[in-house]
Nucleic acid binder design. Structure first.
Lengths: 192, 192
DNA sequence: GGATGTATACTGACCAGTGAATATACACAC
DNA sequence: GTGTGTATATTCACTGGTCAGTATACATCC
């Protein structure tokens, strides 16, 4: 989504882009390395020249999603008028809008970590954890401008819980209304 | 967990039990039908005598988990002293206790539906949706004793969002503290 | 002897990863 | 500026293994 340029992508980036598209649309285990290579327009052997294994590719896919995802949340926060609670609710509203697209598939970080649950130390799980922590820390730093630090941390976690809950529930029921409900709950908690 | 008896299980039930154990521990796609058959102490051919396909087995696994899971929540709610908010928080506390066991693997319904995201009409996804709706409806009916119906529905959804968010976040970070934080947030929302 | 249940052994498809060869490009020598 | 060496980058064809599902036959019970 973000960072689209007209420059020709490096082979490595083309592979990651193809992998991301397929992994996000169908899941990690449902997508073969052959399929990624074909989507990227090259052979599997070339893919294996740029990545040691499928696991490496999965990790690289999540790592490239980290920063753009966080930036998107920050942009949505900044662009929503009102107080902090309104701005946080704005993130949920934007997510609800995204979730209305039939191709929306929830949070790639959560979904990947669920798929790889039987491989506890997997680099992709480490990347997912790091991303979620980064979002929580950013939220916490924002809330610290209104509230005492220990209260800010607790609230940030509660917002994150509502956010990830909404990802899961909306994905299951395919009802973006839950995303708005989660946003309202977050705003209520922030206004206590 | 629940419903353990000393009666000899039927072959079908032994298969479902073995499947449930493996699916929950390692995930749907990571477990082969051969592995399920071996764990159940019979051959794959026998398994296929009792189930038409692996997909059927997955659906059967989730369907057998529906009622015991709901009953567990209801028991935890009933056994916690205090007002409604306290009782709801009790559910989260009990879940936090479960999550401290290193083998805890989150919510099987959510995890299965994530793994099967690329098969939208899959019977297991239908079963997962039905289960989550049943929990929400039960919670809603409980809250209706204190609040007007439309308010009860909204609150039930917010509690569910926190619950499923906690499942996801605790599974990712392996920190049951989030479960307690979610419970506190739920209680706060219920006390508004 | 028919219904029910179980076992052995197999098929066909798929899939992660590899071996060996080839193409491209830039270096430096002469 | 032509030849030669070395890195990078890419391809085709293959292997070893796994897995869902099946053909067929054997047992047991009514």
């Amino acid at each position: 989504m973000a960072g689209m340029t007209t420059t020709t992508l490096s082979t490595r980036d083309r592979i990651i882009r193809a992998a991301g598209k397929l992994f996000h649309a169908e899941g990690i285990r449902a997508v073969s390395v052959d399929a990624v290579a074909e989507t990227a327009g090259l052979t599997k052997r070339t893919l294996y020249y740029h990545f040691r294994s499928k696991d490496d590719l999965i990790a690289a896919y999540l790592e490239t999603r980290d920063q753009p995802n966080l930036l998107l949340f920050q942009r949505w926060f900044a662009e929503t008028p009102g107080d902090t609670a309104d701005k946080v609710e704005g993130i949920f509203r934007q997510l609800a809008a995204s979730a209305r697209h039939p191709k929306w598939k929830g949070c790639g970080f959560l979904r990947t970590s669920v798929e790889l649950i039987n491989l506890p130390g997997h680099p992709a799980i480490v990347a997912a954890r790091a991303h979620k922590k980064r979002v929580e820390d950013w939220l916490c730093s924002v809330l610290e401008q209104d509230k005492p630090p220990e209260h800010a941390r607790r609230l940030a976690r509660q917002v994150i819980l509502l956010l990830d809950g909404a990802f899961a529930v909306v994905l299951l029921h395919r009802d973006p209304g839950y995303m708005e409900t989660a946003g309202e709950a977050a705003a209520e908690l922030l206004r206590q």
